[in-house]
């Protein structure tokens, strides 16, 4: 329990040790720990950002999907509408065509009838005259009876 020259030695060793520890261990290690802390914080932030972005992307994908579904539904509805329209149009066209054909046929028939009547009208006086000549046994002048013949012909 004395104070001796060892005191001086211990003080010098202590001071040198502080300096050495500061230079060799403390500063590099504190810097490294600081760096590591920063890197961990950065990594966590990046992970957070990534998760957030993924969430957003999922949201967007969901939206896109919903939109696509809606569009598809619209397209199908449109197609159905269009097909029924086409069917209707086709029906109408067919009906009109049929109508037109019927009218044309009727007109043809009418024309035929008129033509037959015309032919008949032309022939009726001759046939009537021939019939009368046969009945009377003599020639009959058609011009004398043309009025009667015309009347007959108009009755047809």
């Amino acid at each position: 329990m004395n104070i001796t020259a060892t005191l001086i030695g211990q003080m010098l060793v202590f001071a040198a040790l502080i300096w050495f520890i500061k230079a060799v261990l403390w500063e590099p290690m504190i810097n490294m720990l600081e760096d590591r802390r920063a890197r961990i914080a950065e990594g966590l932030a990046a992970a957070e950002r990534g998760a957030h972005e993924q969430e957003l992307a999922q949201e967007r994908a969901k939206e896109a999907l919903a939109e696509a579904k809606q569009q598809a539904a619209e397209i199908i509805a449109q197609a159905q509408r269009r097909s029924s329209e086409i069917i209707d149009e086709a029906k109408n066209a067919a009906r009109e065509e049929g109508e037109r054909l019927k009218v044309a046929a009727e007109a043809e028939i009418e024309r035929e009838v008129a033509k037959a009547r015309e032919d008949l009208r032309k022939d009726v006086s001759a046939i009537a005259l021939q019939g009368v000549e046969k009945i009377l046994g003599k020639e009959v002048d058609s011009s004398v009876h043309s009025k009667v013949l015309d009347e007959l012909a108009s009755q047809i």
């Binding site: 104070i3 001796t4 060892t6």
Partner: peptide
């Protein structure tokens, strides 16, 4: 009780040895 003519070699050597041990460990890790 205070005698600067004396020097405790064992105290000094052991403390220097332990300081050296610590310094070597610090240097090795650093």
């Amino acid at each position: 009780i205070v005698d600067f003519g004396a020097f405790f070699l064992d105290t000094f050597l052991w403390s220097v040895f332990l300081a050296g041990l610590f310094a070597w460990g610090a240097w090795y890790v650093g």
